[in-house]
């Protein structure tokens, strides 16, 4: 295939302990470290390996967001992507709007494969890949832990509740990736310098003519109920006594 399209979402780094704003309107993001969504990083790694095996010619990374998302695209270019597209929007895009915007890019670029993370670790929606596949009228294989390309088809191993499900999909297709697909490479300093010269196109979302959907309103952000810290017992006899106290033994 010629092209692989990879989505990269800018999210609060997975190591950050997220705090809800006092007025309940969102989470604190000021001064917080931002990164590529970890699942998306795995998607990009897989695309790079496919290209390095000679099974694809070009890897294009795309992000939807404000101008700061260019930082994550630059990281993607430093990892090895060939070029980047930033779909600019200051509004928090909802999954179907993201899918519609990605579909416009898909129609322009005609990739043989779209690789996305199975979910973003901010909203945990797990929707965009499936929605893109539906709108595009193409196959989806979600939560992939193995991906083999065989010409016009791909064989995907999916992590499902019962174990591993293997499906064959005709290409082009949307594959969303799970944690065990690969381990992403580290970015080296010279690659960061080189990435600055790679093309990064910016397209305002309005220019894509994406139809707006009625959004799901976000009414209130709250911290979850915390579990109370319990007791520490000294030995197995203490453990058994404590379980008996609770009527569990």
């Amino acid at each position: 295939m010629d092209k692989i399209l990879v989505g990269l979402k800018r999210v609060v780094d997975f190591n950050v302990r997220v705090r809800v704003k006092n007025d309940g309107t969102g989470v604190e993001t000021g001064g917080v470290k931002m990164s590529i969504n970890p699942f998306d990083e795995i998607a990009l790694e897989e695309a790079l390996r496919i290209r390095e095996r000679g099974e694809a010619k070009e890897v294009i990374v795309v992000s939807i967001g404000a101008s700061e998302s260019a930082q994550q695209l630059r990281t993607g270019l430093a990892m090895g992507a060939d070029r980047a597209i930033l779909i600019q929007t200051t509004a928090a895009a909802d999954p179907i709007s993201r899918a519609r915007a990605l579909l416009e890019i898909v129609n322009r670029e005609a990739p043989g494969l779209v690789l996305l993370g199975k979910q973003a670790i901010d909203n945990d929606d797990n929707q965009t890949g499936q929605m893109l596949a539906a709108l595009w009228g193409r196959p989806q294989a979600t939560s992939a832990s193995k991906l083999e390309l065989n010409g016009d088809t791909a064989r995907v191993t999916r992590e499902v509740d019962l174990g591993l499900e293997i499906v064959d999909v005709d290409l082009p297709a949307v594959v969303t990736v799970d944690l065990r697909l690969n381990e992403p490479r580290y970015v080296k300093l010279p690659d960061i310098m080189k990435a600055k010269k790679k093309p990064l196109d910016e397209i305002p979302i309005a220019d894509l003519g994406v139809e707006a959907s009625p959004v799901i309103e976000e009414i209130l952000f709250e911290p979850p109920e915390q579990r109370q810290k319990g007791v520490i017992v000294d030995n197995v006899a203490g453990l058994i006594a404590a379980l008996k106290d609770k009527g569990l033994l």
Binding site: V12, R17, V18, V20, V27, I121, D122, N123, D124, P214, V215, I216, E217, E218, I219, L220, F221, E222, P223, P224
Partner: peptide
């Protein structure tokens, strides 16, 4: 959301 660190109330159209 956020791996269960935040509970979000949402309203659908």
């Amino acid at each position: 959301i956020y791996a269960g660190n935040v509970v979000l109330t949402v309203k659908a159209p």
